[in-house]
C-alpha cells in the first residue's frame, strides 16, 4: 500500500511540478492584477476592487469578442474534426504508400503557424492573391475581392485557416486511436453482420470516445488562445470582425499596456472555459453509463 502511494506520488508529482513552476506563479500573479488598475502608461498599480470587471461588462467590444471567440473556437474545430476523422479512416486502410500519404497529410501542421498566417494572407490578398485569380477564372466572382478586409468574409477566411491548420492534429490523434482499437472487436462485429455505418457508430466512435473528447476540448482551449494565426492575417479587423479574446487581450496588454484590464479579460476567459469544459466532460462521461 505504502509502495503504491509512493509510486503514485512519484509518477504524478514531476508533471505537476513542471506545470506549477511555469504556470502557477504567473497565473496567480496575473489573476491578482485583475483586481488592480495596473497600467504601464499611466503608472498606476493599486487595488481597484471589481472596477475592471464592471468596465469590462459595459464595454461593447467584450460582447463582440466573446461571440467571435466562441464562433472561431468551435466552428473550425468541428470542421477540422470531420475532415481529420475522414483522413484518419482513409489512412487507416491498407493502401499503397500509406506512410508517404500520412506524412503529406501532416504538412499543414508542420509548417510554422506564423508562416501559415502569412501564406493565407498572401493567398487571399485582393491584388496579388491566387484565390481571386482562381475564383475569377471559374467565373464565381466578377472582381477581385479584399477577402480579409470585408467584415462578412474575414471571419470565414480566418476560420478556414484555423480548420486547415487543425485537420492533421485530429488525423494523427484519431489514427493513433484507430490503431489501438483491436481488430478482434471489429471482427466480432463483422460476424454479427454489422454494416460499415453501424460499425462506425457503434464500435469505432465509442472506442475512440476518450480521444475524441479530449482532442475536441483541447482544440477549443487552444483556439481560445490562438494569436499566431489571426494577428498577422487581420489584426482582429476589419473593425472588430475577427477580434477574439486572444487578440483583444494582446491589444490591451501589449499595445495599450492596460495590464489590469487584460487580466480581467483573462479571468472571465478562465471561468468561462472551466465551466464549459466541466459540463462538456460531465455530459460526455454521463452518456457513458
Amino acid at each position: 500500500m505504502m509502495r503504491e502511494r509512493a509510486f503514485l506520488i512519484g509518477t504524478i508529482f514531476p508533471a505537476l511540478a513542471v506545470i506549477g513552476f511555469v504556470v502557477l506563479y504567473p497565473l496567480v500573479r496575473s489573476v491578482s492584477f485583475s483586481l488592480t488598475n495596473y497600467n504601464l502608461i499611466f503608472g498606476t498599480h493599486s487595488f481597484d476592487g471589481l472596477q475592471q470587471f464592471s468596465s469590462l461588462f459595459s464595454d461593447p467590444t467584450f460582447y463582440t469578442a466573446l461571440l467571435n471567440t466562441l464562433l472561431l473556437s468551435i466552428g473550425p474545430m468541428l470542421a477540422a474534426f470531420v475532415l481529420g476523422f475522414a483522413q484518419a479512416l482513409v489512412l487507416n486502410q491498407a493502401i499503397r504508400a500509406r506512410s508517404f500519404f500520412r506524412g503529406l497529410a501532416l504538412l499543414p501542421w508542420v509548417i510554422p503557424q506564423v508562416v501559415v498566417a502569412y501564406l493565407f494572407r498572401f493567398m487571399f490578398n485582393q491584388s496579388v492573391g491566387v484565390v481571386n485569380v482562381v475564383l475569377k477564372g471559374l467565373g464565381l466572382i466578377a472582381h477581385s475581392l479584399p477577402w480579409l478586409a470585408l467584415p462578412h468574409s474575414a471571419p470565414w477566411v480566418v476560420g478556414l485557416i484555423y480548420a486547415w491548420n487543425e485537420v492533421p492534429f485530429f488525423m494523427l490523434m484519431l489514427l493513433a486511436g484507430l490503431q489501438s482499437l483491436s481488430g478482434d472487436v471489429l471482427e466480432a462485429a463483422l460476424v454479427d453482420g454489422a454494416t460499415p455505418v453501424k460499425q462506425f457508430f457503434y464500435i469505432i466512435v465509442p472506442g475512440l470516445r476518450r480521444i475524441i473528447t479530449i482532442s475536441t476540448v483541447l482544440i477549443v482551449i487552444w483556439n481560445f488562445n490562438n494569436f499566431t494565426l489571426i494577428w498577422p492575417t487581420t489584426h482582429g479587423g476589419p473593425v472588430n470582425a475577427t477580434t477574439t479574446f486572444a487578440v483583444w487581450v494582446y491589444v490591451q496588454a501589449f499595445e495599450n499596456f492596460n495590464i489590469g484590464y487584460a487580466a480581467a479579460i483573462g479571468v472571465i476567459w478562465l471561468i468561462f472555459l472551466l465551466v464549459l469544459t466541466f459540463f462538456y466532460l460531465r455530459a460526455v462521461s454521463g452518456s457513458e453509463q
Binding site: 490578398n125 485582393q126 491584388s127 496579388v128 479584399p146 480579409l148 478586409a149 470585408l150 479587423g237 476589419p238
Partner: peptide
C-alpha cells in the same frame, strides 16, 4: 485604392 492592404502590399504593386 485597394482595401485592407498594408504598405508592403502597395509597394509590391
Amino acid at each position: 485604392i485597394p482595401i485592407g492592404n498594408d504598405i508592403k502590399a502597395n509597394r509590391q504593386l
